[in-house]
Design a protein around this nucleic acid. Structure first.
Lengths: 338, 338
DNA sequence: ACCAATTTTGAAAACGATTTCAATGATTCA
DNA sequence: TGAATCATTGAAATCGTTTTCAAAATTGGT
């Protein structure tokens, strides 16, 4: 392996000088600079990053913790983060919790062992007070998923508004009996959507029928299950609010199997504006989330935290959501209200 | 930051002994062992991994290079790789090329700078002879995408067979005029599928009509475009072979828009057995690829390479593909052959 | 031509671990 | 009991950088 000493020797200089050239220090004569570059070139020298990290106490790596990549929301989030991280000169390490608390804590150890300079939490399996202690080892920020009590930067979406506009739309179409699907009881994202959902109901003097709630729906398969449950109800809902386009797609798939027309007999709204929502038949109304923007902001904020020597910060960024009306919620049997 | 010296001091021992305890060396008395553990515990000591990497010349990190994560095939591949890597005590760094040659070369520099112990190439933007030189800095292996001339381990799928069985199935349904879609001219995966495709045709005395070839189809949008092209042909095909379920889904979407019945007027077969193939209407016939198995094997082989001190190896592993018949290719207007 | 200020350089000390080497202490065996 | 073996420990070197410190070389002003 060719080291800085080899370069120094070939160039006939000390390694201090070589190091200075590499790091673009001022006060190096043009002549020596060129001799160093020449030597590096002929030797094919590249600095060893472990040595650099050790000395600089910076690894130029960050990690992102997500539940799993197959979930297209997180796939997209991580894709955008990787690009943003590279642009800022960082490598992105990917950590999946697979919904396990222990795995999550295991990943947080990357901070302790100084394998990464900071971590983006896009998933939250453990209580915040079990995570907070890791803060003393390096910066943590939250992205998408969050816990208000955490005194760290949070980049999130306005989920309350998201739940609200989606529900409002259903109500405007004349629905009064609306089912609610979401993924995860402890997710604050899901909680906030529910708040928006109920806010919209309340504005129209409606109350949520608890028997229409489904709180463990993540996948297409779950969506199919949900449809089956709904289908056998005596007094079924006329619309269903879902927490993801996949679940919505599952409901459509279930409905097709049972010959139930959507939106004719049941309206369905998704969440995320994933490609799938555009190609299902009928096309799924949904709520668009600015994932790329959120990912970029998160990387940016984390890098800032890293460079500010982990100076405590607790900024909050909230990005807007947008309703996208397609076919799965319009032209149903109910007349539009207002 | 608490270092091994702090532990040594508190335990009243030398750091050599502490190191030996950490690394489970034999010949450390039970008593000192306990004193060390005690000290580590009270100080909350965790070894610094940059220091370790520097000394051991091993980072316990590997990288995987993919085009992009949004592509569900690669999303699934990376998901499985991350899990497998963790199980083997490695962290997975994700590198997207975004189809850029320069970006790919940039990622390969991770090996030069010793940021990773090895790299899995699941994407190949550059010619192999431009990549080969990196081999002197650490192990490289290919997974899925490949170049036969590369003298490194290759874990791939039997794409020739995949192309063959899919086409054979279409021919059995009575099709003789079959369009062919794939992503990427230089991809050997695509090439092999084409070979299988033509082999099946040849077996039935059919020849491929070059005007029915589409070679830049990756996404749903591309699929829609392909459908439009086909739709305005004077002598359109009665079936289309696609290189991915997304493209197949795009064709279905295009067909729906134009009121063309599938499989009634056009049969479509996908590739991958992604969820989307199960929920489109009609459900898409496809070829199942054992992605998880391939991912695990790849990680395994790479780790082996790393531990064998990069001893040259050029094993080839070929995993089988399986035809999955659903609705998009059966019950078409043509009578089944044989 | 001389002094002060400023560039430019190199030797040596970090960074935090692991490993070699040699020394000590304990044990075995005759 | 003495020699030989083996288990146990610590001092110091090492991995490949960056940075501090001080010395040497240059510049500028008079």
């Amino acid at each position: 392996m060719v080291t800085i000493d080899d370069v120094a020797e070939l160039a006939g200089l000390s390694k201090s000088t070589v190091s200075r050239v590499i790091n673009h220090y001022p006060h190096v004569s043009q002549e020596k600079k060129e001799r160093v570059y020449q030597a590096m070139e002929t030797l094919g020298y590249v600095p060893n990053s472990s040595a650099r990290s050790l000395r600089n106490k910076k690894t130029k790596m960050i990690a992102v913790i997500v539940p799993r990549l197959m979930n297209p929301f997180f796939g997209q989030l991580v894709e955008s983060m990787e690009v943003a991280a590279n642009q800022q000169g960082y490598q992105l390490l990917i950590c999946q919790t697979m919904y396990s608390q222990d795995t999550e804590l295991g990943h947080l150890n990357l901070l302790k062992t100084k394998q990464v300079d900071g971590i983006i939490l896009a998933s939250l399996e453990n209580e915040w007070n079990n995570i907070a202690e890791y803060l003393s080892y390096g910066p943590l920020i939250m992205c998408n998923e969050f816990d208000e009590s955490a005194e760290i930067p949070i980049i999130k979406l306005d989920q309350i508004h998201g739940g609200y506009i989606a529900t409002k739309h259903l109500i405007r179409q004349g629905h009064t009996r609306i089912a609610y699907c979401s993924g995860g009881h402890k997710s604050m994202v899901a909680n906030h959507r529910k708040i928006g959902f109920e806010k919209a109901l309340a504005e129209h003097g409606l109350r949520f029928d608890e028997s229409l709630g489904f709180f463990d729906a993540y996948t297409i398969e779950n969506g199919i299950e949900v449809f089956k449950e709904i289908h056998k109800m005596d007094n079924p809902p006329t619309a269903v609010f879902t927490g993801s386009d996949e679940v919505a797609a599952g409901i459509l798939t279930g409905a097709r199997e049972y010959g139930v027309d959507i939106p004719g007999e049941l309206s369905v709204i998704g969440f995320d504006n994933q490609v799938i929502s555009r190609i299902m038949d009928p096309k799924i109304s949904t709520v668009e989330q600015p994932i790329e923007q959120m990912a970029q902001k998160a990387v940016h904020v984390l890098v800032e935290q890293i460079n500010s020597n982990n100076k405590p910060a607790k900024e909050r960024y909230e990005l807007p959501l947008e309703l996208i009306i397609r076919e799965s919620t319009v032209g149903g049997p109910l007349r539009a209200v207002e």
